[in-house]
Nucleic acid binder design. Structure first.
Lengths: 205, 205
DNA sequence: CTTGCTAAGTTAGCATCACTAACTTATGTT
DNA sequence: AACATAAGTTAGTGATGCTAACTTAGCAAG
């Protein structure tokens, strides 16, 4: 008799106190922004949500399951942003590919903690099937898009290999940006320009 | 009367129990390899070194200071590896630049936890002056090397910008490799080949 | 050789955290 | 109106980071 399937009104109504599950996710995201995943404590998320420290375990197996859910939402978010970038810039075009790269970096900058959850090393998290599937779907979209460009522009060479190359570059840019590593050698670097310059080189070569 | 300056014999002799400072660093590195920085506990390092959990505070300010020292050693290690790669492949050559990139990735693969400490987000760690300086020196070497190539081969364009582009790509490859993200879309990818292909494209344009 | 200073260890204790168990509240159904 | 149960509570366990106060051991000077 899991009464989860038919909540009272529309989208978010749950039992007593409202939707604690989503409230905890929101609180966790807030804390992740402030202090990073390493220093985040579930107890503080409880305090933010105004519940006892035992309450989360009615909704989540683990401290980790909260992070899993956030990572999965992150992949959906990233896929939407990529899709939007392609849609406005034209599928299969150089501009579209570049816009996708910019969207990738923009996402990392907007949600660095979530980005690190998604791509950072966390074996327990990556083994979660939902997260793994979301990630795969996300990457598949990117690779397909690059393959489309290759076929439309008659670019020789393995489309998948090229896509991997582009992803590698854009991912590196995102990491170095959000981890403040660029600041050491090139403060105020224009990463958008960096991508705009490098993308065509890697695409045609 | 800090008696640290003139130890009894040569290099590592300290007071009673031997060199606990280095023993703790070694133990910490071991644990970092096994479980990553997030799940590492100082208490376990103490257990490995065979001392009480209060002992570290005679040698380190903090749990964090152990990590700072490891990060700093990591930058020195990376600089040595880069230097060796250049030395054997010829300074200012394409092969030299590529070898440096491979050395960067090889270091990340050999010491993923240390690599993450060095480049990952950890504001408290990056503010440590020793770590910051080591990092800067390391990057400066790389950039100089690329600049040398540019002048020797009469490549037009800003040498520093090109160096940043190369670093971005190689760093992305290292991250995606050690975080197991390539496995999702391209299991068994040959990263060395990826770098060998991309480097010339980014260098000349 | 003894005395004493002090670096380097110890045990004991604090506050916090993740998580569990057992109890209580309140909600929707019958 | 009664009840079954989802969703919350308090209380408790073991582990952690770190501190305070005590103990041990190495070195130097008298």
């Amino acid at each position: 008799m899991t009464a989860n399937e038919t909540p009272k009104s529309g989208t978010k109504t749950r039992y007593h106190h409202g939707d604690l599950r989503q409230a905890l996710i929101a609180a966790t995201r807030e804390l992740l922004v402030e202090r990073g995943a390493a220093n985040f404590t579930l107890a503080d998320a409880c305090r933010l949500a105004g519940v006892s420290t035992a309450a989360p375990y009615k909704h989540f197996r683990d401290r980790l399951e909260v992070l899993e859910e956030i990572a999965e939402q992150g992949f959906n978010d990233l896929r939407e942003r990529s899709g939007a970038a392609i849609a406005t810039s034209g599928p299969g075009t150089l501009e579209g590919i570049i816009a996708m790269g910019q969207a990738y970096v923009a996402f990392a900058v907007a949600e660095p903690a979530v980005f690190r959850l998604m791509f950072g090393q966390n074996p327990a998290l990556k083994k979660a099937k939902d997260v793994s599937d979301s990630g795969h779907a996300c990457f598949a979209g990117v690779i397909d898009q690059v393959a489309l460009f290759c076929s439309q522009n008659a670019v020789q060479g393995d489309a998948k290999a090229i896509a991997l190359t582009l992803w590698t570059f854009v991912h590196g840019a995102a990491c170095l940006l959000i981890d403040d590593d660029y600041q050491q050698v090139a403060p105020g670097l224009d990463v958008e320009a960096l991508i705009r310059t490098a993308a065509p080189k890697l695409l045609v070569g």
